[in-house]
């Protein structure tokens, strides 16, 4: 136990104020995200992630949002296990036809009002896989999409910025706290 505490102490807090190493504008992304989540979701934005056919590259980067560098929970954003608890769906694609119905059901199970973000080039436009006998293509072909975050895969910072922009873009987001 002492060793664990020792290690924790030595490493200290590494969670970053989203620093200028990528883009100077991002240094405020976290604070703006927190403010937006605070204002529009009473401080708590619940996200359900759905892999609707991804190669798993996007999943690796979405998982990274929970590592101590990004620590997305500190902004009030957390991933939940059921769509019934979610305000937002992050959907990676391309939507395989075998996942189509599952995605529709997840969408239906998510309470309104909800935000849907299509993640990655495949989620946004079908990417390397496009539309075929096996793929329905972009997420928007199957469920209504509010925003897209492109990239193959998008980096964790791209994801945070994209989530923030999606919250900002939806005019009716105020209704999230009136229910």
């Amino acid at each position: 136990m002492l060793r664990i505490l020792g290690k924790v102490q030595r490493i200290g807090i590494i969670t970053e104020r989203l620093s200028p190493w990528d883009d100077p504008a991002l240094s405020q992304v976290g604070d703006r995200l927190k403010a937006a989540v605070g204002e529009r979701f009473r401080g708590s934005l619940a996200i359900r992630q759905v892999d609707a056919g991804s190669c798993n590259g996007c999943e690796l980067e979405i998982q990274a949002l929970n590592n101590p560098y990004y620590g997305i929970e500190r902004f009030g954003v957390h991933f939940v296990a059921s769509p019934r608890h979610a305000d937002m769906l992050l959907v990676t694609g391309p939507v395989s036809r075998h996942m189509e119905e599952a995605l529709r059901r997840v969408h239906a199970a998510t309470p309104d009002p909800k935000l849907v973000i299509a993640i990655g080039d495949c989620g946004a436009n079908g990417g390397e896989f496009g539309v075929s006998y096996a793929c329905a293509g972009p997420v928007s072909k199957v469920v209504p999409v509010d925003a897209v975050i492109t990239g193959c895969p998008p980096t964790p910072l791209d994801l945070m910025r994209g989530i923030l922009e999606a919250i900002g873009a939806r005019k009716d987001c105020r209704s999230f706290v009136q229910v």
Partner: peptide
């Protein structure tokens, strides 16, 4: 089989660089 994307079929007709991307 839920994430079957037709990868093998999609490869057909691609050039070498296209197959590497896939």
């Amino acid at each position: 089989g839920y994430v079957h994307k037709g990868t093998e079929k999609l490869a057909e007709g691609r050039d070498a660089a296209g197959l590497a991307r896939l």
